[in-house]
Design a protein around this nucleic acid. Structure first.
Lengths: 408, 408
DNA sequence: CCTTGAGTAGGAAACTTTCCGACCTACTCG
DNA sequence: CGAGTAGGTCGGAAAGTTTCCTACTCAAGG
């Protein structure tokens, strides 16, 4: 029933302990040997041995000396930044952004361009061009990138390649992954943009220690990035979080509850003329325009409705308002909370504003790419030994796997 | 970020390997040494040593000989059935059932009684009496029970003790866990009944290999048992799956979509007189009664509506129809599927009938109790060595823990 | 019917890997 | 100059593996 045996020869111990050393360094930045010894509980000798090996294999390097204490200076160790380069890409409706980061998370280069409208091949070409540009600026070749993660406004299957319901991609994004990977020859993963925003929220934003939360991303449509037990929940075919189609009393079945289009419609109904953009409507509302405020309130109401529905299904600890409208959290949050309180939801619902600055999708993509690139590099190092721990265990990074956990 | 270091001395290897041996025996029934050797990849010597220790510690025992092959008979090993006794209890609206199982899952004794209506103390007393009765019939004392799991028709917090919104328990079930545990002095866990039905479905029913599924339990109310990644998803405060309150066009906010009460109401509206029970209505429908069929269809429609909403949030692989109405799957399933098809849900939704025979809640409770009792027994055996793997890793059985997985 | 050989189970001894504790040296700040 | 710290080395302990050996059973052949 339980899955992985994880039995092995003594060499397994080396894997385990080296991995522990690696993790401590990874988590707590440059560290001296005595601290690593304390943190891992291993003996000085073992830590020294492990570090020697890890340095020899290129995933750890010395990083100066710690002279704060008296006595001889302790040499510090850190993850070698260049052991894993990662590319994050955000394919939005208007523009495509890319960022190249190293294993430490430092930004090495950024680039952006307008999003092509016609052909998938153009989109793919734009991505590879951005990757090449970033790589050149960082002084490496595109082939040195260990992992690329591309955020797309679409439902992505768990294989990270197949794309469905792509509203904002030419030709529905068919074959996008294949074309990019052929030209770039870098391990590639597509991922839903809202999911990546949720990752960013978890890593850089307001949900650092929260195991279960939902990011509500409002933009052209409404989507939810769902994190359960600290992991993204993608659903059987990647369709989890497509909450834009949740039934709403005032909406026909099969149409979206919320999104740029619906807001425009509501603006028309409210008597606003000139079909302004959502951003403009929110601007007017901030200025005190009654009709714009009515639209804002209707929007808040629908968000509250969706949040309540989600809460009844999975009861997350927290909702976060992100996406294009996340910037309007000042207008929306209070109203959403009022609607939630008024409708007397059976559960208390906490909702806050996004804590991520900048392009959340891009940052999430970069984080995920870095994580995978690094995991790959670490696994390669561990793989030199007979057994390793890279699958099934707590270090499992298989995003596409069946996820057949066994424990209830 | 990553949590558990899992570094350790050589003794750790013993834990790992012994655990691997234990798992193989656990999963594949009585096994000879050569097969264990093959399955774990360990050497003959190590397996022999581990088995010697495990037998000495009482969690494994010899189970005859395998004479199928030629040569000397291989002694078979199995988990010692008596190393962990577990009690499953189902507190229903009408009756309380209990079953005592051993570590192998064999039923040792069963008992049941009427559910008290007035005081929680009576309910608790009934449970302890059933436990004592089972223990006596099995020839042990109640104190030998390693774990008890009690299914209740209520929202249970993740600590397995605090009860909220208990429709079917006296005094809202307050203090139930404390009173039972005081009288019984056995580790106790309360659990939502629908969740336990989902566990049963996963272990004995139609969802054996399915990582993500939702059990729809229709009874007095409507609840969902949600299994994601093979694990029960309980929600932040145990309130996940309270889908009975999902908004429905034809229902006021804050009232339940479905349940015995609503069916009665619909029966009234359909012109059925004499306020028959749901069971009776379904019986009439099977007989061809038009008005009863209308009620059935309305029920199916609402179930379809709820399933569609859930699917948009978490997109499970499969829905299973269980609970009191699971028996009426023959009437409901086709109609539910028709409604789903008609409303053109954005996602394909698979829904099937429960595959569990007997009392699913009771069986789920027994399974979970057995799992935890056994895990506890195993952990105790492993604990004799300096390090063990019982927390954080793939063997984590902490149902109440924070679940702060790190990998996205 | 007996003999013999091949395949299997179980065990013991020698070797290898790995980790730990203890001891030692060198360095630096007070 | 001394106490406290960093880093290295050596021997011992623990665990697993390989190799060799014995004993047992089935099946084929004389």
């Amino acid at each position: 029933m339980s899955g992985n045996y994880l039995a092995g020869p003594q060499g397994l111990l080396w894997s385990i302990n080296a991995r522990a050393v690696l993790d401590v360094i990874d988590r707590e930045g440059p560290l001296g040997r005595p601290e690593i010894t304390r943190a891992t509980g291993l003996s000085k000798t073992t830590v020294a041995q492990a570090l020697r090996e890890l340095v020899a294999r290129g995933v750890v390097e010395e990083a100066g000396a710690d002279t704060t204490r008296r006595g001889p200076a302790a040499t510090l160790y850190r993850i070698a930044p260049r052991c894993a380069l990662a590319l994050g890409v955000d394919i939005g409706h208007l523009r495509i952004r890319a960022v190249l980061v190293d294993a430490a998370g430092e930004t090495l280069a950024q680039a952006e361009t307008r999003a092509p409208r016609r052909r998938v091949a153009d989109t793919a070409a734009a991505v590879t061009a951005l990757a090449a540009e970033c790589a050149e600026r960082a002084g490496t070749g595109p082939g040195d990138i260990g992992q690329a993660v591309v955020g797309v406004p679409a439902v992505v299957a768990r294989d990270g390649r197949t794309v469905r319901r792509a509203y904002g991609l030419p030709q529905g994004g068919r074959g996008l992954a294949e074309v990019i990977e052929r030209d770039l020859s870098v391990p590639l993963l597509l991922e839903n943009d809202v999911n990546l925003a949720a990752v960013a929220e978890q890593r850089f934003g307001a949900c650092a220690g929260v195991a279960d939360f939902v990011l509500l991303g409002v933009g052209v449509g409404l989507g939810a990035g769902i994190v359960l037990g600290g992991r993204l929940h993608r659903g059987f075919a990647g369709g989890a979080g497509e909450v834009g189609f949740l039934p709403h009393p005032a909406t026909e079945l099969g149409t979206e509850v919320l999104g740029a289009r619906r807001i425009a419609e509501q603006a028309r109904q409210a008597g606003i003329e000139g079909s302004p953009s959502p951003q403009e409507i929110f601007e007017s509302a901030r200025g005190g325009d009654e009709r714009a405020l009515a639209v804002v309130d209707a929007t808040a109401r629908r968000i509250a409705h969706v949040a309540a529905s989600i809460a009844l299904v999975i009861e997350p600890e927290l909702f976060v308002l992100g996406g294009a409208f996340g910037a309007s959290a000042d207008l929306l949050l209070g109203r959403i909370r009022r609607h939630l309180a008024r409708d007397a939801a059976p559960l208390p619902i906490r909702i806050i504003a996004s804590g991520v600055s900048g392009d959340a999708v891009l940052r999430g993509a970069a984080w995920l790419a870095r994580h995978r690139a690094r995991e790959r590099a670490f696994a390669a190092v561990m793989g030199g030994r007979p057994h390793d721990m890279t699958t099934g265990g707590p270090y499992d990074t298989d995003l596409t796997g069946s996820g057949k956990g066994d424990i209830t």
